[in-house]
Each structure stands twice: as C-alpha cells, then as structure tokens.
C-alpha cells in the first residue's frame, strides 16, 4: 500500500512541476492556460489518489475535492481564455484562427 501511494504521490508532484514549467516556458497566454491549469489537474488527481491509498477512510472527502476540481477548473479556464481573447485579441503566433470572425468583430460592441 505504502509503495503504491508513494508512486502516485511522486507522479502528482512531477505533474505539478511540469505544469509550472509549462506555464513558464509557453510563448503566449492561451498555451500557458493549456499547460498550466490542466497538467496541474492531473497532478492534483494523482496526489488525491495517493493519499486515498494511505487513508482509505478519507476517500469520500478526497473524492469530493476531485469533483470540485474537475467541475470548476475547465469552466474557470474557459472563462479566462474568452476574457483574454476579448480584451487582448488573439496571439500573434497562431497558425489558424477560426475565432476571429466571431469574437474579433464583436470586440467593440459587447
């Protein structure tokens, strides 16, 4: 049990570190949202599973935390991405931009 839990905890820590590295290295805001807020989601899951293996009686509460993260995180990052596009426009390095016709045109109206 202890070994499984340890493996999950270390994987979780690894994904946290990678998420931080991603948010530091990526060139524009949208890619940072991609790398940052979601690599850390898997990191959080992994740590929750690791703790659940050590203390099985906590698993209901841990499950509740995982549920909150999985429900709130994507909504938050979607709202953030939309707000970023509306206020600062699309990034300069995109290779395809289907969103421009929709949001770019209505930027001044709101």
């Amino acid at each position: 049990m202890e070994i499984i839990s340890g493996v999950f905890l270390i994987i979780g820590g690894l994904f946290y570190a990678l998420g931080g590295l991603g948010i530091f290295r990526m060139p524009d805001t949208f890619d940072r949202i991609q790398a940052g807020t979601k690599a850390t989601t898997l990191g959080a899951f992994s740590i929750l599973i690791g703790v659940a293996f050590m203390f099985p009686s906590w698993s209901l509460k841990l499950f509740l935390i995982a549920l909150f993260i999985v429900l709130s995180n994507p909504i938050g990052s979607s709202a953030l991405a939309k707000a970023t596009y509306r206020s600062f426009g699309g990034p300069s390095n995109v290779e395809r931009d289907d969103l421009k016709e929709f949001l770019g045109g209505t930027k001044d109206v709101d």
Partner: peptide, 24 residues
C-alpha cells in the same frame, strides 16, 4: 462536451455560439 474538451490538455474550448464550439 466543452468541459471534456477543456480538461484534456492540448485543447481548450474558448467560446460557444449555437452549434459551433471554438477551440484553442
């Protein structure tokens, strides 16, 4: 659907307009 797309990294749904999803 939008939540699933957002939670799998590499894709991020930015906006929705009727039956169209805009995905980064």
């Amino acid at each position: 659907l939008a939540n699933s797309i957002t939670l799998t990294p590499g894709t991020l749904s930015v906006d929705i307009d009727g039956e169209y999803l805009y995905i980064h």
